[in-house]
Nucleic acid binder design. Structure first.
Length: 605
RNA sequence: GCGGGCGUAGUUCAGUUGGUUUAGAACGCCGCCCUGUCACGGCGGAGGUCGCGGGUUCAAGUCCCGUCGCUCGCGCCA
């Protein structure tokens, strides 16, 4: 007989009755009835009820073993007597009568319960992640992650993509975030950068002629975290040669859609997958106030600047902003006139919490406009509002007035706030049980800094400008679009990508428009620039955030829920104690002296 | 860097307007009892710097100020 087990804990069935088996696992729960003792023995495959029967000499020993201890038992499989079968358990028809029991590893008193989800705080769960991971829900989510990864890998390989590994100790890549830096011992004063993405390597692989690249790639960015943003994360990184933007979409849609369809019932509720038409960046900002709109939210934003510019409209608060080049955006909230006053008041205080003066509105009922602003907007102007926003009786319309960029952003936030304020069963409430994907296309190549007016790249500087050299030479930089695109699902940016710039001349011109000279370009990206001079194929690709996709499938609001080991919100790992002080010897080796802020003292300092 | 929320037993929480004695409950832990449970049940017990520091008050878990920790968001970041 095997040293530890003949079966796993989710395996035994009626057909095994009479067999003598050996099981190993963790004590999930014990039920001690004095004479008879039940042990639920757990491993990753399931739970089997094991019985220490009356009169057994093992009773006094086994009943002292704590939950979460690891034990091995030998015993006979028996059908459960009478009414005691348990339909809820796959192994519920049988139980194992223990003849021998070995304590492999005793568990101390555990800091929180494994067998039940007791709502333990995240910091404690992360500190004892190995215990947290024993819980059924975590085991399921990590398995989902495994399955998603292998599904994506399989789907990519089936499409003739080759999988690569690229360096982790490397140089800065073109993404705009701060790099994680690693000091070089052999080269005093010099540093490696951890990759923010394998951007340059995958492009170099295209120039090397590999044609179709993918990697489940670790990426590192030293910027503050969010629920959907971590210092290190994984991307399904993809690059293809001789393709157009549409071909990238056509290649990736079946991969992502197929994978989502495969796992969309993970939560127990099957979810629909819908791929919506492309949306131009400008349209997304206008209609949804976001470049990652949640299309489950049916509300849309319209521009009503013209209405408030009318001479017969006397709302001074908006007039002043309009005179300074601002805009008025509005959101139609259908069928809300019967909502209590608190519906509008809550949205108003929400807007104030966002730093806005308030959230003005007009509600239409019985053919009449009502609300604090209505008296400033005469009937003719109200009629124009109705036409622009498609207002019907019993609808309300909310207003946001500010400079364009701020108004867009605020309107986008208000669009979600209004939708969330609607009752759950409202016709226009956020849709449920659906993943709505779309590509956001035609991002601007450049943007102007709000404060300084300086023109800079708005996204990846390696993207190909849509008009090529011609546009770069003849257009206002702010009017140039890039072959740059994002894939968005339910309000999350899942993927960003581009058709790349494969021409060193266009690259130089593109950088010069953003104020970067040839020297900077050669210094920062000389390796890749040189590679372009030896025959570079037109190419493009994208990268899907693996963790965010798993998070969506698991219906978790937080990325940390879909990693086995992960840092907290402050990017500390309390389990492994990272980051940590290092010894003076280590610093000396690296030729580094610390120059710390006054109030912080570390052991090495 | 900034803002919101939270911080009471090992865990999750309750604690009213500042005032009932020893700050409670559930789960967990320890002891005793229990032959069929599967969230077993019963009896008893231990366990608290109410995050920390200061202040107001006859009296502070409760009010005020500061500070620390966690978390969500803004900035930042695709």
């Amino acid at each position: 007989m095997h040293a530890y087990r003949t079966h796993h804990c989710g395996e035994l069935r009626q057909a095994n009755v009479g067999d003598t088996v050996k099981l190993s696992g963790w004590i999930n729960r014990k039920r001690d009835h004095g004479g008879v003792l039940f042990i639920d023995l757990r491993d990753t495959y399931g739970v089997t009820q094991c019985v220490v029967d009356e009169g057994s000499p093992l009773l006094s020993t086994v009943e002292a073993w704590r939950n979460e201890s690891v034990i091995t038992i030998v015993g006979q499989v028996r059908e459960r007597p009478g009414e005691t079968a348990n339909d809820k358990l796959p192994t519920g028809a049988i139980e194992v009568y223990i003849d021998e029991a070995t304590l492999q590893s005793a568990a101390d008193v555990i800091p929180f319960q494994v067998a039940e989800d007791d709502g333990t705080g995240e910091d404690l769960r992360l500190r004892y992640r190995y215990l947290d991971l024993r819980r059924e829900q975590m085991q399921k989510k990590i398995r989902l992650r495994n399955n998603v990864t292998s599904s994506l890998r399989r789907r990519m390989i089936e499409q003739n993509f080759q999988e690569f590994q690229t360096p982790i100790l490397t140089a800065s890549s073109p993404e705009g975030a701060r790099d994680y830096l690693v000091p070089s011992r052999l080269h005093p004063g010099k540093f490696y950068a951890l990759p923010q993405a394998p951007q340059q390597f995958k492009q170099l692989l295209m120039m090397s002629g590999f044609d179709r690249y993918f990697q489940i790639a670790p990426c590192f960015r030293d910027e503050d975290g969010r629920a959907d943003r971590l210092a290190e994360f994984y991307q399904l990184d993809v690059e293809m040669s001789f393709v157009t933007q549409e071909e990238v979409f056509e290649t990736m849609e079946p991969v992502i859609k197929g994978m989502f369809e495969e796992f969309s019932d993970f939560t127990g509720t099957k979810r629909d997958i819908q791929w919506m038409p492309h949306i131009r960046y400008e349209d997304a900002m206008m209609k949804y106030g976001s470049d990652k709109p949640d299309l489950r939210n049916p509300l849309e934003i319209v521009d009503v600047s013209d209405v408030f510019a009318r001479d017969d409209v006397e709302f001074k608060a908006f007039k002043g902003v309009l005179a300074n080049g601002g805009v008025v955006r509005a959101i139609r909230a259908p069928q809300v006139a019967d909502q209590p006053r608190s519906f509008f008041d809550k949205l108003n205080s929400w807007a104030q919490s966002q730093g806005a003066p308030g959230l003005g509105y007009i509600a239409f009922a019985d053919g009449e406009g009502k609300g604090p602003i209505a008296k400033f907007v005469p009937e003719a102007a109200q009629a124009q509002l109705k036409e622009i926003a498609g207002l019907e009786d019993s609808d309300a319309i909310f207003f946001i007035c500010d400079q364009k960029a701020k108004a867009e952003k605020m309107a986008g936030a208000a669009r979600d706030a209004i939708c969330d304020a609607l009752p759950e069963d409202h016709t226009y409430a956020r849709e449920k049980n659906v993943y709505k994907f779309c590509w956001i296309i035609d991002f601007p190549m450049y943007e102007a800094d709000e404060a300084t007016g300086k023109v800079d790249f708005s996204h990846n500087p390696f993207s190909m400008p849509q008009g090529g050299m011609d546009d770069l030479e003849n257009k206002d930089p702010l009017d140039i679009y890039a072959y740059q695109y994002d894939c968005v699902c339910n309000g999350f940016e899942l993927c960003s990508g581009a058709i790349r710039n494969h021409s060193p001349e266009i690259m130089a011109k593109a950088f010069s428009l953003a104020g970067y000279g040839q020297e900077t370009l050669e210094k920062e990206f000389g390796g890749m620039l040189n590679a372009m001079r030896y025959g570079a194929p037109p190419h493009g690709g994208c990268a899907f955030g693996l963790d965010r996709m798993v998070m969506l499938l698991a219906d978790e609001p937080n990325l940390r829920e879909v990693y086995a080991f992960v840092m907290n919100g402050q990017y500390e790992d309390q389990l492994m104690s990272a980051p940590s002080d290092i010894t003076p010897e280590q610093l000396k080796d690296l030729h580094i002296k610390l120059n710390l802020p006054k109030e912080i003292k570390t052991e090495a300092a």
